[in-house]
């Protein structure tokens, strides 16, 4: 077809940067590629350690499933030194994916179905809930998407974020990967993308350089 659909709003990617990145990888926490926390504990205990160290009182944290806790904590560390004042909350978007959706919680819900199905567990059987938890915590009202993919792929993430930036008025994107298999096998990385001349350029090679997820 000759008349390809053009984005209604198109922006150059040259000015976009990776302002911050945080990775939580089986007990190790990296901020902008640098190790900042390391624990031998499994996620049940490690999540409490990280909550005490990096988060402020937020009772809802304890009600979340493990996947949402992982995403929530990654975002807490990502944004802890980032000033959200004077930022339009309608223009902060999230693009997050994983490969196991909510399998861990699905199995827990299956257990409750044998006796009494639990509404509190059921609400976490959709992976986009973790995006919602981050939005509620910080008051973000921008676009968001959660995608399921075979494995973490920086090129795919870049394309998804580029598509969003080119088709919206978004000022900032929190993008990445949050995957929870079990308390001893979990990985997440979130990047804060925006216009910041002091930071690394938003580019596939820089997304790759800043993570250890293979």
């Amino acid at each position: 077809m000759e008349d390809a659909i053009q984005p209604y709003y198109s922006r150059k990617m040259d000015n976009w940067s990776i302002i911050n990145s945080v990775e939580i990888n089986n007990g190790k926490v990296f901020a902008n590629g640098r190790l900042v926390h390391d624990t031998e504990n499994d996620f049940t205990l490690a999540s409490k350690e990280l909550y005490k160290k990096y988060s402020k009182a937020y009772i809802k944290f304890f009600k979340m499933d493990a996947l949402s806790k992982l995403g929530f904590l990654t975002a807490e560390i990502l944004l802890k030194d980032f000033n959200l004042e004077n930022i339009d909350m309608n223009e902060i978007a999230l693009v997050v994916g994983n490969s196991n959706a909510t399998k861990d919680t699905d199995l827990k819900y299956l257990q409750t179905m044998r006796e009494q199905p639990s509404p509190a567990v059921f609400v976490y059987t959709l992976p986009n809930i973790l995006v919602g938890e981050i939005c509620i915590r910080h008051g973000f009202k921008g676009q968001n998407v959660f995608y399921i993919s075979g494995k973490f792929d920086e090129e795919e993430l870049y394309e998804n974020i580029e598509l969003l930036i080119n088709n919206s008025t978004t000022d900032y994107v929190i993008g990445g990967w949050v995957d929870f298999i079990n308390p001893n096998d979990y990985k997440s990385i979130l990047y804060l993308i925006g216009k910041d001349s002091k930071s690394s350029k938003f580019a596939i090679n820089n997304l790759k350089r800043l993570n250890n997820i293979k």
């Binding site: 409490k48 909550y51 009772i59 944290f61 304890f62 009600k63 639990s118 509190a120 567990v121």
Partner: peptide, 9 residues
């Protein structure tokens, strides 16, 4: 226990 408020006593 029921509401998973595990951080509370």
């Amino acid at each position: 226990d029921h509401l998973n408020l595990e951080g509370l006593s």
